Simulated assay, not measured.
Amino acid sequence: MEETGLDIQELEYIIDHAFREDIGEGDITTNNLVPETTSAKASMTAKADGIIAGLPIAEMVFKKLDPNFSWNPKFTDGDAIKKGDLIVEMEGSFRAILTGERLALNLMQRMSGIASETAKYVAEVRGTKVQILDTRKTVPGLRSLDKYAVKAGGGTNHRIGLYDLVMIKDNHIKLAGGITPAVKQIRKAVPSTIKVEVETTNLNEVREAISAGADIIMLDNMNNEMMTEAVGIINGKAISEASGNMNLSRLKGVAATGVDCISIGALTHSVIALDISQNIIQS
């Protein structure tokens, strides 16, 4: 299987859970119509243009059903594909091909949809210093796959969860009594290796976040004029991140403000699956 950088045990858990959900005690249609020893050849074909992602995960699906399954991809994750392209040829147990089809396609279509959408945003800021970041707005239990797909589309993963980066937001600030005491309290509690991000909504909060020593300053729901001023105030003392209602039509204008990053929830929370079909070639 192609190296993904994903945790194999986590992938096993995701696929096993999906099998329990979809197959249960057995595929009663396939198992009662297809002899156990029958083999077949099949293929997956693109029915739309996009960026492919999830090929190694789909391979894992079929190989869990048939360890001797043959998987011959014509592309690798992150490649651009066109409508009509042959994506992969496969051969193995006919039962495995039919039983694993829906799970393999569900995962690949979602992941390819995320990669394809991410690639559109990345293309909009090409030639600038801006990084396109994802968010935690992912399907519960599938975050690792969603974020892998963002990377396949050329994006950058932001924090993976609540544990790997401090993000002090408005409710935290209210509870702590302000940005400065919130950052001070956090700095005492967490290792220095963990970055601290602070959400700001106006220029006074930006100034306070800089003085407090934030590593990353989120410019939340600011218009482009205010963001430009905020970037000038930050002046390299922290990483600047634009966030809030970001879409393709806004992207070039936001990038022109000089921000370092733009975080976009729509990469993963409003996915349109890339259309891919699976067909039997020979049985």
Score class of each variant (00 low, 15 high):
199 E>P: 10
199 E>H: 01
199 E>M: 04
200 T>K: 11
200 T>M: 05
200 T>R: 05
201 T>H: 07
201 T>V: 12
201 T>S: 10
202 N>H: 13
202 N>I: 02
202 N>R: 10
202 N>Y: 11
202 N>M: 10
203 L>W: 10
204 N>W: 10
204 N>Y: 14
204 N>M: 13
205 E>S: 11
205 E>G: 04
205 E>H: 01
205 E>I: 07
206 V>K: 03
206 V>Y: 06
206 V>F: 06
207 R>V: 05
207 R>E: 13
208 E>L: 06
208 E>D: 06
208 E>C: 11
208 E>V: 07
209 A>K: 05
210 I>S: 06
210 I>W: 11
210 I>P: 02
210 I>M: 07
210 I>Q: 07
211 S>H: 12
211 S>Q: 15
212 A>V: 08
212 A>N: 12
212 A>I: 13
213 G>L: 05
213 G>E: 02
213 G>I: 01
214 A>H: 12
215 D>L: 10
215 D>F: 02
215 D>T: 12
215 D>S: 03
216 I>Q: 00
216 I>C: 03
216 I>N: 06
217 I>Y: 06
218 M>Y: 07
219 L>F: 04
219 L>N: 10
219 L>C: 00
219 L>A: 00
220 D>K: 02
220 D>M: 08
220 D>C: 10
221 N>K: 10
221 N>M: 08
222 M>W: 00
222 M>N: 06
223 N>F: 13
225 E>F: 12
225 E>S: 13
225 E>M: 14
226 M>N: 13
227 M>L: 13
227 M>I: 03
227 M>G: 06
228 T>C: 00
228 T>R: 10
229 E>K: 15
229 E>H: 14
229 E>A: 05
229 E>Q: 15
230 A>D: 02
230 A>W: 09
230 A>T: 09
231 V>Q: 03
231 V>A: 11
231 V>L: 02
231 V>R: 01
232 G>K: 13
232 G>R: 13
233 I>Q: 11
233 I>R: 02
234 I>G: 09
234 I>Q: 00
234 I>H: 00
234 I>N: 12
235 N>P: 00
235 N>S: 12
235 N>W: 04
236 G>E: 10
236 G>V: 01
237 K>I: 07
237 K>W: 08
238 A>R: 04
238 A>W: 14
238 A>F: 14
239 I>Q: 14
240 S>E: 03
240 S>R: 01
241 E>P: 09
241 E>A: 04
241 E>T: 00
242 A>Q: 09
242 A>F: 13
242 A>Y: 04
242 A>R: 01
243 S>P: 07
244 G>Y: 06
244 G>A: 05
245 N>R: 15
246 M>W: 10
247 N>P: 08
247 N>C: 08
